[in-house]
Write a protein that binds this DNA or RNA. Structure first.
Lengths: 146, 146
DNA sequence: TTCCATCATGCAATATAATTGCGTAAAAGT
DNA sequence: ACTTTTACGCAATTATATTGCATGATGGAA
């Protein structure tokens, strides 16, 4: 578990009541090293105890709305979820392996994006900037060459 | 139409036979100022003469595979399609308005992304870097305030 | 405590986007 | 002319996500 994250507190400070299910979803999202799909999260939760898939979707929507979680588009069909950027989680780009479908986090510094000029000149409202690198991860490259 | 693009030639140089349908799809994609969803493309084509939705999907897949078109993930569910970067089309970020669902092209310079260091150090294969800005476009902001 | 209101959840149905299987017709090669 | 390959259409199916409605839990007011 991320020792810097207190999930109870995160929910509280976002004014979201901390139900059992919400905590469970948030823990799965937050404790994972890389973003997960709704299905990943559902399957993980189901193992420990029953939950409805729709509940997972609804909780993920709620967490995203309240800025606790972040929804990331992948190169594939499903959305992926991770903790939203906050004091100890810098915004960072992601890598999507189109072979195994795994999404990975890249270092915040690995890819330098300068958004300042856009922020100043853009005539609409900017909510977020998403940077995704697509390709094949080293594991999949290895397997293909075996 | 983009006067620099010869769609026949683009297909030929990618070794894709230029059928009527492929040309029609590519024209719609290429002549548009901003990326379109498969559904947008289908509806546009249907107006002029009949085509099957599946054919549109298949042609889009083909164009993407052959590097003629580019598939962009949006903040929503559907993928969007534009011309792939080439000699007269620099890679550039996009803006997705979560209110009207329109995807817009931003200037290549509007957002400076430095991928060189990642390219050098990343242990897998990198195919593309996608940068998407999400928010609300100026038109939608205006309407909401009316 | 009892009543009421609010809200979280489950379940079934539905929506949306994309894909697959299969048949046919057109095109290309022999 | 015959065969092979390819493009396309249509129907069915899959994957992902959302909606509507019912129920049960929770918390406050009387």
């Amino acid at each position: 578990m991320c020792h810097l994250c207190n999930y109870q507190a995160m929910l509280a400070s976002a004014d979201v009541e901390a139900t059992e299910n919400r905590l469970r979803v948030l823990e799965v999202v937050g404790n994972n090293r890389f973003p997960l799909s709704a299905d990943d999260i559902f399957k993980t939760l189901e193992r420990s105890s029953s939950i409805n898939r729709v509940t997972v979707y609804r909780i993920l929507d709620l967490l995203v709305e309240h800025g606790i979680a972040e929804r990331l588009s992948s190169g594939g069909r499903a959305a992926y979820y991770g903790l939203a950027p906050n004091d100890h989680h810098m915004p960072h780009p992601h890598f999507y392996c189109k072979s195994c479908g795994q999404m990975d986090c890249l270092n915040p510094e690995s890819l330098n994006v300068d958004i300042d000029s856009l922020w100043k000149t853009f005539p609409g409202r900017i909510d977020k900037v998403e940077v995704r690198v697509d390709g094949i991860c080293k594991n999949c490259i290895k397997q293909h060459s075996d």
